[in-house]
Simulated scan of single mutants.
Amino acid sequence: MIRKNLSMGRRHGWLPFALFVAALLLPLAGCDKRADALIEIGGPTMGTYYSVKIARPPASMTAETLKPDVEVVLDQVIAEISTYDETSELSRLNRNPSTDWIPISSNLYDVIAEGQRIALLTDGAFDITIGPLVNLWGFGPEQRPDALPSSEEIQVARARVGWQKLDVRATPPAVRKARADLYIDLSALGEGVGADRVSALLEARGVADYMIAVAGAIRAKGRNAKGQPWAIAIEEPMPDLRSVHRVIPVSDRALSTSGDYRNFFERDGKRYSHEIDPMTGAPVERNLGSVTVIGESGMVVDGLATALMVMGEARGQAFAEARGLAAFFIVREGETLRGFGTPAFQGYLDR
């Protein structure tokens, strides 16, 4: 399962990619030179970078007034679901040893419940209880150990993992752990949650045309400053390069890209990605470099992109096609890259 950092700047493994995307979106958006045609703001968040672009904004809206409000929204997401912030609601929940029902906020419930829904849908390829394994491999808040985990350490951590070990209740919102040491990690949903929350803020203020990017999670609505769909770049999954594989037009949709090429470490010449398979307890070893999913909710496509990366290109493609998901896979084949989309994604490639 892909680990996405909600550290509010404590780590920056995704920052170069986010800056690359933000730089690409400026020319690709086709914005004109009129000062009142486009509002652009951006900055650090969740250990990565966010960018917001608004075409034809309301007359009273300015970048100076919008930026602090957007950052309040993103800071609230961190305060709810970050495992890097020891004071967050999720961190407090993880420290709570109770195996009885634990009350939680409605916002935290919404994210946990969606994570559990995706876990059920993907037969555990997506698992929000994977935190002990993420931390063991050095992709969490703790410092990465010098040595690789032993098989015994992996088995001990795996015993704490399993989405079936967590029950959720909607009214009143609460969770119940089967083990006192269950550790929930919502990082693979966090960027999508952030994009969705900022989208709700903009829509409440009457904004009809916008593009929001929180690292690889994007929400786009309406048209850019030239009246065209927002043009979104899918990056080639190469760790040492910054190049575009495809550019696709997106309007009134959410998009998320997950990949294995930015957050990894090497030991003895072997690369270990931050994608952890809950079934094996170890980083996955596949030729699949990235997956992009398009849908209605940033949180949902964020989780699904993660799940498809864990499944791999064959199983992931079959899963996506069987459920009508719009997904695009980029696979490494020796020195070349091969990209292909599901039938539901093909319309974006043909435009």
Rank of each mutant, 00 (worst) to 15 (best):
E321H: 12
T342S: 04
L337C: 07
G339T: 11
F345Y: 15
R323E: 09
G312L: 01
E313R: 00
V300N: 02
T306C: 03
R338C: 09
A307G: 05
L308F: 04
G303V: 01
I330T: 15
G347D: 10
Y348T: 13
R323K: 07
V310L: 00
A305I: 10
V301L: 02
L304K: 09
Q346T: 14
A314N: 10
G303C: 03
F340C: 04
E335R: 14
G347Q: 13
I330G: 10
S297L: 02
S297N: 13
Y348L: 09
R338Y: 14
A344W: 13
G339S: 12
G347T: 15
T342K: 03
F329W: 09
R332F: 04
L325E: 15
A320C: 06
A326Q: 07
G334N: 13
E321L: 06
G324M: 06
R315G: 01
F328Y: 15
D302V: 00
V310P: 00
I330D: 12
V300L: 05
R338A: 11
S297R: 14
L337S: 10
D302Q: 06
G324K: 11
R338Q: 15
E333Y: 07
G341S: 12
M311L: 02
V301K: 09
V300Y: 08
S297I: 08
A305L: 09
V300R: 11
F345S: 14
M311S: 01
L304S: 02
L304D: 05
F345M: 14
M299H: 05
T336R: 15
